[in-house]
């Protein structure tokens, strides 16, 4: 992990020399086993950059905040699609952006790691040993098997080396996801329930949504200038009010179902919606359901088409006859 961190700092320094105006990466968090997004605006700020298995955030969406600056961004395999998606939908000017890819050995579930490490130990180094991360702490060495400590999304990961980047740091990482693991296993379980049980499952989850919209804010596919759910101002867009702001079960379900539908075929699978949810709604269960259906029904969408819903085949499966 150390080399990647060093490389990042060097690259950032070089880019600033070449006229870069903003570098979006990660720095260590203020608490152990945590990283956070970091915005370096000048040469002197690059030393704080790090990369470690706690850099789970997808930084792509931050690019939208700097439309006029020459910006560099660090992406993992699962984040690269987000930059692509934002560029494809004209939210970003690709010529102003330098995309820096880092090989990813998987991201760790912080709670589980903390529970494993000695409470008063300070992490001094982390090494990726293919099947495990080795933590050096002030209390000694700890080997954390990936299988047991990776985030759920990393266990089904198929794209841990970014593509379409301008600059790739380090060596290509070996595959992280467990082979043979069905990414749709949970979706299938839910689908197998009878309708009332499915309704109960989702109602329990949706009931706790605060409608903080963090899932939307972080989502690289939710890139509307003004989200339809906020167009509640009469006179605006001929005054169509799609959804009440009330935080009730029907409104919450409406919001999440339609949001999932809006990102159908455009979701890059980064899982940020789920990560940022303060009430831990497993939102990827919605996105993955759609991804599975799209895959089953329509297969891959041609690259020149904006999304699966912007095209058709006359022979598409017809479930309405």
């Amino acid at each position: 992990m150390k080399e990647i961190t060093e490389m990042l700092q060097q690259v950032a320094a070089r880019l600033f020399n070449e006229g870069l105006e903003m570098f979006i990466g990660y720095e260590s968090g203020s608490v152990p086993a945590k990283a956070r997004p970091y915005f370096a605006a000048v040469q002197g700020e690059t030393a704080a950059l790090v990369f470690n298995p706690f850099c789970e955030h997808n930084l792509a969406k931050y690019l939208v905040r700097f439309p006029n600056a020459k910006t560099a961004v660090v992406v993992k395999g699962c984040d690269a699609g987000a930059v692509e998606r934002l560029v494809k939908e004209r939210n970003l000017d690709r010529t102003r952006i330098t995309v820096i890819g880092v090989p990813c050995g998987g991201m760790l579930a912080r709670e589980r790691v903390l529970a494993e490490l000695p409470q008063d130990g300070k992490i001094t180094a982390i090494t990726d040993r293919r099947d495990a991360f080795v933590f050096q702490t002030s209390k000694g060495e700890h080997v954390l098997e990936k299988k047991a400590f990776l985030l759920a999304k990393c266990l089904i990961c198929t794209q841990n080396n970014p593509t379409g980047v301008d600059l790739m740091l380090g060596k290509e990482a070996p595959p992280v996801g467990e082979t043979g693991k069905d990414p749709y296993a949970r979706v299938k379980e839910i689908s197998a329930l009878d309708p009332p049980a499915r309704a109960a499952f989702w109602d329990r989850l949706m009931d706790r949504c605060l409608r903080c919209y963090a899932c939307r804010e972080v989502c690289p596919a939710c890139s509307c200038t003004e989200c339809c759910f906020e167009q509640a101002v009469p006179g605006w867009q001929q005054g169509a009010i799609w959804l009440s702001k009330a935080v009730t079960l029907p409104d919450n379900l409406h919001y999440h179902v339609i949001r999932a539908f809006h990102v159908a075929g455009r979701c890059t699978g980064c899982g940020e919606c789920e990560r940022v949810c303060p009430v831990r709604i497993p939102l990827m269960l919605l996105n993955r359901k759609l991804a599975g259906d799209i895959d089953e029904l329509y297969g891959p969408t041609p690259p020149d088409v904006p999304s699966v819903l912007c095209t058709y085949a006359t022979g598409d499966r017809d479930e309405f006859t």
Partner: peptide, 27 residues
């Protein structure tokens, strides 16, 4: 053809979140 794609996915999604298939019909 667009309706078919959109509403196939939407109907499946509605059913997934617990709506009975009979509630939403496309013909």
């Amino acid at each position: 053809y667009y309706t078919r794609r959109r509403l196939t996915l939407f109907k499946r999604l509605l059913e997934y979140v617990g709506f009975e298939p009979e509630r939403f019909i496309v013909r």
